[in-house]
Design a binder for these strands. Structure first.
Length: 483
RNA sequence: GGCCCCAUGGUCAAGUGGACUAAGACACCGCCCUUUCACGGCGGUAACCCGGGUUCGAAUCCCGGUGGGGUCACCA
């Protein structure tokens, strides 16, 4: 079997989008699953909108997700260059071939003329397409138009009597009637190739065997097939994956919230969670497994199991999955990843405290940026200004309870870990002859100033014996015990 | 509007003519654990868009409708 060669070909006009990331992922998984090659090519023929920053951002997001490429921009390879603006001579050569073989012709229509025509067609309820004005210009007419200073674009001559059938790996056979297509531009008047032309040249030259891309490209595919045929090239396999939709079922865009990978990265989503989630958007393993490692994905992915219907991006599920990964990864790693968020919030824990704090706080979050809001109790002494908290502290048994814990603490060494803390706290209610609620809630409030928060046995080891004692004293002062 | 794609719970989805009284996950609800919140465990509510065919039998095949989406650039 021939080696599978797939590619991701973003245009650098913005950050890597959720949808783009999924296309990249599917291609990458294909390559990894079947031992093929994954290529990254930059489609920067839109000179106006393309930028180097976007390219950098996209590549950095891909790397962060763990998608590495075998050939392409930055890493090189035998089929370079991998940036379309650096491949202009190549397109020129094949454009000339098309011109000479009669498949293409120069078009002198101006943008204004074209726009007027389009609007007239739209208004008349006709099909919008190029009417073919320049198709049969005589050489003399061409010379005349050139003399007027018009720079021609190059159009592809679409045979009107054909029906193009695209074989698609996820959609089956899809047919398009050429009659409604209209001659399309393959090289702009500034000499830059258009997307439809450049993809074909590049995919062919780079030996791409499978074009896996979003469904929005499906309607362009027949044009590309025509080009392959005119150039005498073998048509690759296509697989058009369905779009990712926002909550309102329209194609996902900025108004649906965070749509770029870097935004998720900044909020503290883990790359493996995003990869896992994205893989499940439009593909399913066919088993009951939902949490899948990259290794499992690489072993199981196949186009046969890609869904046809579009998928709504469900942030709730991503959050759940990300929380799952945060809770199940080694604490050390999560601690390291959480540190910048804590620093930004003004906390400066040492290594040991960081680990302890994160070990507890990670049970409460969906993404790392939420961590700071759960660590307050570990770093700041309680203020007791919450009305609910004051109410609890006002209960009559509270002085006895606080005293009891202090006595217990006095009788032991450092509170080493949660188990030790549990041991310490366990007998308190019985000793005092009180129900658990009357004991633990006041303790919680005394130590944290809040009625909600981490388990007491998680809290004590972090505060340490001295810290706990100090807070008990503060609570006693707050309720007016002077001893 | 033309062309094209799609159609199973709120969401992601399994299902490829009989095993469907339709799996699993997220979300939601309840219970348990925890005398807090979350985590975790257990359970529950909830779906084959409609109408015609084909067939002994249709979520599954065909046709039509409806709905949603994509696309119609010298953008990609």
């Amino acid at each position: 079997m021939r080696e599978i060669r797939v590619r991701f070909a973003p245009s650098p006009t913005g950050p890597l989008h959720i949808g783009g990331a999924r296309s990249a992922l599917f291609n990458w998984l294909m390559a990894r699953r079947y031992g093929g090659k994954f290529i990254v090519r930059i489609e920067d023929t839109d000179l106006e909108r393309s930028s180097k920053e976007s390219e950098k951002n996209i590549l950095s997001s891909l790397r962060w997700l763990g998608l590495d490429w075998d050939e392409g921009v930055d890493v090189g390879g035998p089929n370079g260059p991998y940036r379309q603006t650096e491949r202009l001579p190549l397109y020129e050569r094949y454009a000339r071939q098309l011109l000479e073989s009669g498949w293409a012709y120069p078009c002198y229509c101006t943008e204004e003329e074209l726009t007027a025509q389009r609007q007239a067609q739209l208004a008349a309820g006709e099909m919008v397409r190029y009417a073919g004005r320049c198709r049969s210009l005589t050489p003399q007419e061409r010379v005349r138009l050139e003399r007027e200073g018009r720079r021609p674009a190059l159009r592809f001559k679409v045979p009107e009597d054909r029906v193009i059938t695209v074989r698609d790996r996820v959609r089956g056979e899809v047919s398009f009637d050429c009659a409604g297509m209209g001659d399309f531009i393959i090289v702009k008047s500034d000499g830059i190739p258009t997307y439809n032309f450049a993809v074909v040249v590049d995919d062919h030259l780079m030996g791409i065997t499978h074009v896996v891309r979003a469904e929005e490209h499906l309607s362009n595919t027949p044009r590309q097939v025509l080009l392959y045929e005119a150039l005498g090239w073998e048509v690759p396999e296509f697989a058009h994956i369905s779009l990712i939709l926002g909550k309102d079922r329209a194609k996902m865009s900025k108004r649906h919230g965070a749509t770029s990978i870097d935004q998720y990265r900044e909020r503290g989503y883990l790359p493996e969670a995003l990869v896992n989630f994205l893989a499940l958007l439009g593909w399913s393993p066919g088993t009951e497994e939902e949490v899948l490692t990259v290794e499992q994905l690489k072993a199981q992915f196949s186009l046969e199991r890609v869904t046809k219907s579009p998928a709504v991006f469900d942030l709730e599920k991503l959050n759940w999955l990300n929380g799952y990964y945060i809770r199940h990864s080694p604490v050390e790693r999560i601690a390291e990843l959480a540190l910048p968020y804590l620093r930004r919030a003004g906390y400066a824990p040492g290594e040991e405290k960081l680990r302890l704090v994160v070990a507890v706080a990670r049970n409460y979050v969906e993404y790392l940026a939420q961590i700071p809001q759960y660590v307050d109790v570990f770093f700041n002494d309680p203020g007791y200004d919450d009305p609910e908290a004051r109410e609890v502290l006002a209960q009559e048994q509270v002085p006895r309870v606080l005293g009891a814990l202090r006595d217990k603490l006095a009788g032991t060494g450092e509170v080493a870990d949660a188990a030790a803390a549990k041991e310490l706290l366990k007998k308190l209610p019985k000793d005092l002859g009180l129900g658990g609620k009357k004991v633990y809630l006041p303790l919680r409030v005394a130590l944290t100033g809040k009625t909600k928060g981490p388990e007491l046995h998680d809290l004590l080891p972090v505060l340490g014996k001295e810290g706990t004692l100090a807070r008990l004293a503060k609570a006693e002062a707050a309720i007016g015990i002077t001893d």
